[in-house]
Design a protein around this nucleic acid. Sequence first.
DNA 1: CATGAATGAGCGTTCATTCAT
DNA 2: AATGAATGAACGCTCATTCAT
Lengths: 200, 200, 200, 200
Amino acid sequence: MTQSARPTPIRPRKRPRQARAEETVESIIEAAAQILETDGIEGFNTNAIARRAGVSIGSLYQYFPGKDALTVALIQRETQRFHDDAAAALAQRSGKASLEYLIGAAVRQQLQRPMLARLLDVQESNPALRGEIEKAGLNALIVAVVKRVAPRLEHPEVAAADLLAIVQGLTDSAGERGEQDLENLEHRVRAAAFGYLARV
Amino acid sequence: MTQSARPTPIRPRKRPRQARAEETVESIIEAAAQILETDGIEGFNTNAIARRAGVSIGSLYQYFPGKDALTVALIQRETQRFHDDAAAALAQRSGKASLEYLIGAAVRQQLQRPMLARLLDVQESNPALRGEIEKAGLNALIVAVVKRVAPRLEHPEVAAADLLAIVQGLTDSAGERGEQDLENLEHRVRAAAFGYLARV
Amino acid sequence: MTQSARPTPIRPRKRPRQARAEETVESIIEAAAQILETDGIEGFNTNAIARRAGVSIGSLYQYFPGKDALTVALIQRETQRFHDDAAAALAQRSGKASLEYLIGAAVRQQLQRPMLARLLDVQESNPALRGEIEKAGLNALIVAVVKRVAPRLEHPEVAAADLLAIVQGLTDSAGERGEQDLENLEHRVRAAAFGYLARV
Amino acid sequence: MTQSARPTPIRPRKRPRQARAEETVESIIEAAAQILETDGIEGFNTNAIARRAGVSIGSLYQYFPGKDALTVALIQRETQRFHDDAAAALAQRSGKASLEYLIGAAVRQQLQRPMLARLLDVQESNPALRGEIEKAGLNALIVAVVKRVAPRLEHPEVAAADLLAIVQGLTDSAGERGEQDLENLEHRVRAAAFGYLARV
DNA sequence: CATGAATGAGCGTTCATTCAT
DNA sequence: AATGAATGAACGCTCATTCAT
């Protein structure tokens, strides 16, 4: 009768047990990504997402306890890619190569779906989502990379956060301006990242 | 973000001709800033802003043709401060001093009202507001500063945009984490900015 | 973005300051009463109530912070009548006359709008509304009446609650069966009430 | 309460012919009772009931054509207990003992599962369920008890209905206030019942 | 000009019910 | 028969915007 007073949980409501369900979940997340890319935050509403996914609104809520949970899932999916890249980065021979690898991954990902990446960065600052986004794993990896490039740094965690901010700031801004030249952008991001590490 | 289908004009409906009107406009913008700081985007709605400004919702719409126009006005006001600082930066003796001055200004502004600065950056990415925000003036000034520090740079406009992105990225991220140490943050931002310029 | 997590307050959002507003509030409450009578709880939804009141859904929420608040207001309005009658009851010469007066009032009110009275009794048991309904005043009056009829009773508050339960139980049941004979019903209610007091 | 436009039949879809089916039906009804007790009407939805019963939602609809049918079945089950008690009541020696026995049963049942009893009374007033609940048998028994206690009463059916209303009104009200003292409550209910019969 | 009551499109979400597997 | 994924009508509620006073 009255709408629930307790805040909606963010974690997925149920693990899909059938193949069909898994497909549905995937299609919803992908629809969310597409909506964000084509219509921006304005069009980012659950009904539209369900429609785009070719799924009923009820199904959306079968797998996501609320809109925020879906947003988180989308962010997680995109973060995961970066996370995998970061893991690969650590496998590089030198520290320098590690960071370069990481930057390359970030830039590539950004230029692939610029709108999506930018809007997700924006969503990430939504306080309702705070703490729900698994950043610990990614952060640890970046810290590890930082420690390899600049082993003598006093506060590698701060440097890691700063590097992430620099890379995101630069790529988002480039994406906003519609930049396409991957090489050039990558060069500039490297300049900022290595420049920072050299002087901090 | 905007609810109506037909796009609302963004430019102020009327230039205030009387002192009282000017005050009203100012109070509304300040109310918008305060709401953004205290309640975040969640609380950023026209009715709340009017109430906080001690003005009727009707009056708000007398001076702003829509919510977006008000948002733009607020962004402009904050940008103006930075613009003034940038102008002062150019008056510095050396190019290095100019950029340092600019960075100091940016960091200070960010740490003074961290919420506001961050949320405005987010608003700025709203495509509905795009193009309505007067950035040309500020950009020109930054380009001028860049030309002084790095006269031989091939694309000073790109560098200017990058520097803005780096500074905003770093300060927003710092604000998000609740950093308070101005000196330390300024040091790191300088590292990134000068490092970038040295290597690009 | 997400629907509010904190439970909706029950008290009216604003005191109407203009005559028009007062009318609107009245019309909404009356519409709620009518809907409850004609369509039962099934039809008791905010959109239908607003429509019946000839008012937009927005106006309803301008004066009532939520559906529950409206329900409470409706219950209060109906309780008020009874409250007034109870006050008049105390003015009767004898204690017996007081209780008889009260019973007469209850029976009359019940038979006037049987559906409404019954459904409101049901609503009253809604835990979400508990404590929001001003019962203290009415209770005190009934206790006073009880003390006059049966001054030597050990627990007049319990007796008052019991009497209320008996009267409501009987009248609701009568209303449910479509009874119309006021005299007869009143006689039976008196039998139960006075019989209870004589033996408890 | 029912969502579909066309009215759903209320009678059970099929008589269970196998022992296992009978168990399933029983487990669903018991689950419904438990949900009503622990979560109140708020939590009383078919999916939750099926889950609590350890049965799929599909199975629930295999045995009950709709939610209302399940509610009716639950009410019937609870009524049945009372019905059995009423039958036992008639076996008492005197009429007075019969009624006292009945009241004792009612009070005990109410205080055993106060939530359940009260909420079922509320459900009973749902017009969609009206007429579907088998009350004739119970009524006849109460009438028989009444005839034994007060053989000269002109309208024993009315008295029976009134007594039921009085007892339910008092016990529900007591349950609502969390009363636990069985003896005391029983004493007051007797006072009301016998007082009523003596004066009506 | 100012006020604030009124509007209503649209959003997030629930839950009874169906039906392919 | 049993399962549970899927459906979608319907509800509670918000907030940008209008307009009579």
